[in-house]
Design a protein around this nucleic acid. Structure first.
Length: 1238
RNA sequence: GGGCCAGUAGCUCAGUUGGUUAGAGCGCACGCCUGAUAAGCGUGAGGUCGGCAGUUCAAAUCUGCCCUGGCCCA
């Protein structure tokens, strides 16, 4: 049969990771990725030009996790697809290297914290440490990149701390400065007074405490209306000296009420009663008014702190002047939840307060001239402005201020109030305070209309981001607080003259040197003395702080402001900074080509991060005039990205956020490499463990882990056989039995002392208290791996596929080993089985696609044409979806076609593949089948290449490259398949769908009636609802007959089968609803009662029927009625949408004999298997049996001999059987088999 | 407290221009098949579509309120 094997046998073993490793090595050795970047080295035809993708830089300071696996899977599939479609898709890697997290890590390493300690340590060595620590996880990242098959140009990665990158960022800032969009203001942040540093939002969240603070109601007397007071509420009396405004909400109702001694109070109407109760007063309402009636009114400050400013005014933009402070404002953050509906505003404290103040400032011509009211120092003590309170710690000032107000009759009421308040997470006793710090801003609100217009042009996936989360953020935009009072970041490139205050924002080192040729002498000298000094530090603190410039206006000295900038600004500059634009030679042409991006994608948390910084910077920097000036031509929105796929988060199997400290995450390696988890061994003698064991002994060879860890390894049942080894002794693995113990924390393992001894590990001293995060950092002899050796890890393709096929990428994903395996089975393993099936038979027949030619498709069998059509349809659909970034939808189509291939095409075609070689007709048909399957698999290998690049490559190498060694070297170098429209046959597809449903119905009938498929039946009657379809299905009779194992299929009309089937008529609601409205329900009832057969006959005769509904005749066309056939009760029948299948169930002796023959054949096949025969081995067989067996076997002799590849077949009475032969019973008959390899 | 997203079978998820038998896979039960074989396949049970109201001839789908979870913001 076989001359030689063209294809390499597909191994039975499912070890995807090791196969993937081989593919990865192949790519590396042959430089495949680099070759996909240019049309010259691809086989995809002439270049279609660039398809621009931007890599959002991950921070190199942390480890890659499952969320990154998601983003990287998505970010990889699109460029791979576009590359195969003929586009050039450069993918420059990038690293986000600045920011507080880096500083915090270094602080941890150095065992210091706080700015004071950093400065004591020295900023130079500190920054040096920062730059060194940035890439501490590079190895892990590169490994992740390679393992997951994320193709990225890592060699030429952009790095945000590089000089060229920083100079690009400087250029952008310099542009903004020239446009007047950069200004100095104040930013309210959470401030740690004792430490003298601001805390990030995340840090603030780490330590909220429930505390008691004063709750005070204070009277602000209205100007020009002595005795009438606004009643305001505050829990921070220490901010009252810095009061600037009172805020109401314009739309709310307020009342003026009688307070005491003829004085009046104004409060929100809804809160009057509550206040009256507190005060024990009536607070009789005198006048009602709206909040907006109060807006603009001035009041007397309750403290005289900034008395000098009482009458100060500032010029308004629209002319005239307005007093600065102590006015009533309208603010929408005013609520009726607590207080009085009138809010005390201290612009220096509280973000709402400061924003309200900033809104006021916008009215002035010179907003920067307006001083900020602040009577508290950064040390948390009252300043000289606070007069008598000077030097008091804020909390100590509270009671004194209240007493002062009380003495002056301005304290309406005070009490204690319990609420949550943030404390410093490093110094538990220190409360934080909100404090306005001097800060640099970008005036984004000035150009917010442009940003909104830009956003409107972006294609967002999912769509709701555009007007939802992102649109909202833009609509509520506040100016971008750019500066950070830190050390490790891009230095803000603004130099200010000591003399005249002039500002200059140079765009590069060269520009600085032009003004001051000696600017960098100090750094260069330092570097000459110490060559280990990183060259890029030339543009960093503290060296850059030493650079001065001469002032062009007054010849004074200009010094740089001390701040660094928000690292979101760094990453937002990436479209041009990655190219060193505009400074770098040639960057202009390159940028022009690579801007804007066609596609970016990151997780949803980037909405206010990278998505925002990209869009905002691009909007501000690249306005029309600037584009023109830079020679970029006219560019319309959107930029810098046209489409953005917003990804969801990856959660654990319960949908909870994966967290390292909780340990509820699936380590990526468990998917990508080996099914194992690291544990800390603990002793069963630990009292805490004893409690959980409840007297259960821990025997040698048995270990206990948390149920979550047990399930995390995808183990089922009560116990599992696993291998265990010490962290550094993989070769010394011991078999153990793992059990789950309820209540055990994650990542600890209870083991008997003798097991611990045999593994040379020692129980953890902390016992159950050991922290999950610390387990991987324990000494080697305190760590053990538990590995499930029975099933290899699913691998990278499976991991990737999980993200594509489990749900649309913007929904949150529940991730676990078992979920990944589930989807893998559904697609990769199924496809691999088909592939393996193909290789087995192709090799048996010596099939070589390069040397033989099958019939043209039009002449091949219906199954061949069908699957070819399905594949072509799939190609068409997949491309359509991918063009719109519909990755999930595309993957579903792929799953469907693989199912069609495996579950129908191969299943229905199996016998064709083992047709004997002698028969010319059958041989030709076999060649058709083999070729069709081959072509399908080759197309699929290309179709799935962007999704599962490793497996696709394996397919391609074996199927294509072995037959055509000159073919393009990799599947990733070839063109993405085009749907061959000539192969698409939509009606064939519909027919086959119907056939599959009819078969399903037939099998349902067999199942319902306990008629096994092996027992042939005489006849199946099929009634199809749709007449047109019925006619075209006739030719599928033999196929259905074979699948249902019946002798004959008859296509019937209802009525022909003695009541087994009848019609049911229903209104077509979609069609009739609009026409007859309410009456459809009555019509439905009428149709149920009517004689369906008569109506149906009338409809086919006349083309319409008239039905009487509530005394009114309604004309109905065929279109307006749904006609279904249904199976009647009491028949061996089943019905669905397509039609009804009725089986004739009576068994004649002949049919019984046929069934018996099939049973015998099954036993023979089992015998072949028992003998270990290969698919092509011949069998010498003797069948011993009863008289009936002998008769039946004789009758089926040729079938049995052929099906079971018998070289000889002897039939003999059972009495002749050798004594050793096993006797089988089928029904009442007995037989024995004797066979050997022929 | 606000915004956005989600809630559909035991589990993981599809499904909306509103249209009358709400789908798939896994798991489970029963069974088939035995030349893809430590594979393959079928059938079935299982759903008040988170709850309550409303709009409509008709609601998983539209509207309002509420509950639960996630994310972002405060």
């Amino acid at each position: 049969m076989s001359e030689k094997s063209v294809f390499e046998t597909v191994t039975g073993e499912l070890d995807f990771p090791s196969e993937e490793a081989k593919i990865a090595a192949f790519w590396k050795a042959n430089d495949i990725f680099a070759r996909t970047l240019s049309a010259d080295s691809r086989a995809t035809g002439p270049s279609k030009g660039p398809f621009v993708f931007y890599e959002g830089p991950p921070t190199a300071n942390g480890m890659p996790h499952n969320g990154h696996a998601l983003t990287r899977s998505i970010k990889d599939v699109v460029p791979r697809y576009k590359t195969m479609c003929g586009y050039d898709v450069p993918r420059k890697a990038g690293w986000d290297t600045h920011g507080l997290p880096v500083e915090v890590e270094v602080e941890k390493d150095l065992g210091i914290h706080g700015k004071a300690e950093i400065e004591a340590y020295g900023i130079k060595p500190f920054v040096q440490k920062c730059i060194e620590s940035v890439f501490r996880y590079t190895e892990a990242w590169e490994r992740n990149t390679e393992l997951i098959g994320y193709w990225l140009d890592t060699e030429n990665a952009y790095v945000t701390y590089h000089q060229s990158y920083i100079e690009s960022v400087w250029w952008a800032l310099s542009e903004l400065h020239k446009k007047g969009l950069l200004y100095r203001g104040h930013k309210v942040c959470w401030w740690w007074p004792q430490g003298g540093t601001a805390l990030s939002a995340a840090e603030v969240g780490w330590n909220y405490k429930s505390v008691e603070d004063p709750s005070a109601f204070v009277a602000f007397e209205l100007e020009g209306e002595p005795g009438t007071h606004l009643c305001v509420w505050t829990t921070t009396p220490w901010t009252l000296p810095s009061n600037g405004y009172a805020a109401v909400r314009g739309g709310l109702d307020y009342v003026v009420c009688d307070w005491k001694d003829g004085k009046k109070l104004i409060v929100a109407a809804a809160l009057r009663e509550g206040l009256a109760k507190k005060l024990g007063l009536e607070l009789t309402v005198l006048v009602s008014l709206k909040g907006r009636d109060l807006v603009g009114r001035r009041y007397v400050p309750c403290m005289d702190t900034f008395g000098a400013l009482r009458d100060a005014k500032a010029d308004l933009k629209e002319g005239g002047a307005a007093p600065l402070y102590w006015r009533v404002l309208d603010a929408d953050f005013v609520t009726l939840d607590a207080g009085t509906g009138i809010v005390h505003i201290a612009p220096a404290f509280g973000e709402d307060d400061n924003n309200a103040h900033k809104l006021e400032l916008r009215r002035y011509r010179e907003p920067d001239e307006v001083p900020l009211l602040c009577a508290v120092g950064p040390d948390g003590k009252m300043t000289a402005e606070a007069g008598a309170f000077e030097g008091l710690w804020i909390k100590d000032a509270d009671p004194k201020i209240l007493a002062d107000l009380d003495a002056r009759g301005l304290l309406v009421f005070s009490e204690k109030y319990r609420h949550d308040y943030p404390y410093c997470w490093r110094a538990d006793e220190d409360p934080l305070m909100q404090l306005a710090r001097p800060a640099w801003y970008i005036r984004t609100t000035d150009r917010i209309g442009d940003a909104i217009a830009n956003n409107q042009a972006v294609t967002w996936l999912p769509e709701h981001i555009k007007d939802g989360r992102f649109g909202d953020f833009l609509r509520n935009n506040v100016d971008w607080a750019l500066s950070r009072e830190r050390y490790w970041g891009t230095p803000l490139n603004v130099w200010v003259c000591e003399g005249c205050g002039a500002e200059h924002a140079p765009a590069s080192v060269a520009e600085i040197e032009q003004r001051n040729p000696h600017a960098f002498d100090a750094f260069r000298a330092a570097r000459a003395a110490d060559p280990s000094l990183n060259e890029h530090l030339i543009v960093h603190k503290p060296w850059i702080d030493e650079v001065t410039l001469p002032c062009e206006a007054c010849q004074g000295t200009m010094r740089r402001v001390t701040e660094v900038i928000d690292c979101w600004f760094d990453s937002g500059c990436m479209p041009f900074a990655q190219l060193g634009f505009p400074h770098k030679e040639g960057s202009q042409a390159e940028f022009s080509q690579r801007w804007p991006a066609d596609f970016i994608s990151e997780a949803i948390d980037q909405t206010r991060g990278w998505f925002y910084s990209l869009l905002m910077i691009s909007t501000l920097v690249f306005d029309e005039a600037t584009c023109e000036r830079l020679g970029l031509g006219k560019r319309s929105y959107p930029h810098p990205y046209k489409a953005c796929v917003v990804l969801g988060h990856v959660g654990d199997r319960e949908g909870k956020k994966e967290s390292k400290s909780k340990g509820n995450y699936t380590p990526p390696d468990i998917i990508l490499e080996r099914v194992r988890i690291e544990f800390a061994p603990v002793s069963p003698d630990d009292p805490a463990v004893q409690k959980l064991l409840r007297g259960k002994p821990v025997e040698a060879g048995a270990v206990y882990a948390a149920r979550e860890d047990y399930e995390g390894l995808d183990l089922t049942g009560d116990e599992a056989h696993v291998m265990m080894y010490r962290g550094d002794r993989h070769d010394d693995a011991r078999p153990m039995t793992l059990k789950a113990l309820k209540g055990l924390p994650r990542r600890v393992l209870v083991m008997a002392p003798e097991d611990a001894a045999s593994l040379s590990v020692k129980p953890n001293a902390q016992g159950l208290a050991v922290k999950v995060v610390d387990v991987p950092r324990l000494p080697q002899n305190e760590r053990v791996f538990v590995e499930d050796p029975t099933r290899p890890a699913p691998g990278a393709d499976a991991f990737r596929w999980f993200f594509y096929a489990s749900s649309p990428p913007w929904t949150n994903t529940r991730h676990s080993l078992s979920n990944v395996r589930l989807l893998q089975k559904d697609f990769l393993i199924k496809l691999r089985n088909v592939y393996s099936f193909f290789v087995i038979y192709a090799n048996i027949d010596g099939f070589d696609p390069a040397k033989v030619t099958a019939n043209p498709m039009a002449q091949r069998s219906i199954l061949d044409r069908w699957i070819a059509s399905e594949v072509a349809l799939t190609v068409r659909e997949v491309k359509k979806h991918l063009d719109g970034f519909g990755i999930y939808e595309a993957s579903q189509r792929i799953v469907d076609v693989v199912d069609a291939l495996s579950n129908w095409y191969v299943r229905r075609s199996r016998s064709r593949f083992w047709a004997p070689a002698g028969d010319a007709t059958l041989a030709a048909d076999k060649l058709d089948a083999t070729t069709t399957l081959y072509e399908s698999l080759v197309t699929l290998s290309k179709l799935i290449a962007p999704f599962v690049p490793f497996f696709a490559e394996g397919l391609y190498q074996n199927l294509v490259r072995r037959a055509w060694p000159d073919a393009p070297q990799s599947v990733h170098l070839v063109a993405y398949p085009d749907a061959d429209e000539s192969l698409i046959d939509e009606s064939l597809a519909a027919e086959m769908r119907a056939v599959r449903e009819l078969v399903s119905l037939g099998l349902q009938v067999r199942s319902d009636n306990r008629l096994r498929v092996r027992q042939p039946l005489g006849r199946a009657d099929v009634v199809v609802s749709d007449r047109a379809l019925a006619a075209s299905l006739a030719s599928y009779g033999p196929l259905i007959a074979e699948e249902l194992n019946v002798h004959e299929v008859r296509w019937l009309e209802p009525g022909q089968e003695a009541g087994a089937v009848h019609y049911r008529l229903k209104p077509n609601f979609r069609a009739l609803g609009p026409r007859i409205g309410k009456k459809v329900q009555a019509l439905k009832q009428a149709l149920e009662r009517a004689d369906a057969a008569r109506l149906h006959a009338e409809l086919s005769r006349e083309g319409k029927v008239v039905v009487d509904v509530e005394g009114e005749g309604i004309d109905l066309s065929g279109e307006e009625l749904d006609i279904a056939v249904v199976a009647s009760e009491g028949f061996a029948a089943a019905g669905g949408r397509t039609g009804v299948v009725v089986l004739h169930t009576e068994l004649t002796p002949e049919l019984r004999d046929e069934g018996l023959a099939r049973d015998v054949l099954a036993k023979v096949q089992q015998k072949r298997k028992d003998l270990g025969l290969a698919f092509t081995d011949k069998l010498a067989l003797t069948i011993y049996g009863s008289e009936r067996i002998m008769r039946v076997v004789e009758a089926a002799r040729s079938t049995i001999a052929e099906e079971a590849l018998c070289a000889s077949l002897v039939v003999a009475p059972l009495t002749d059987a050798p004594a050793t032969a096993a006797i089988f019973a089928i029904e009442a008959e007995e037989l024995a088999l004797d066979g050997t390899k022929a």
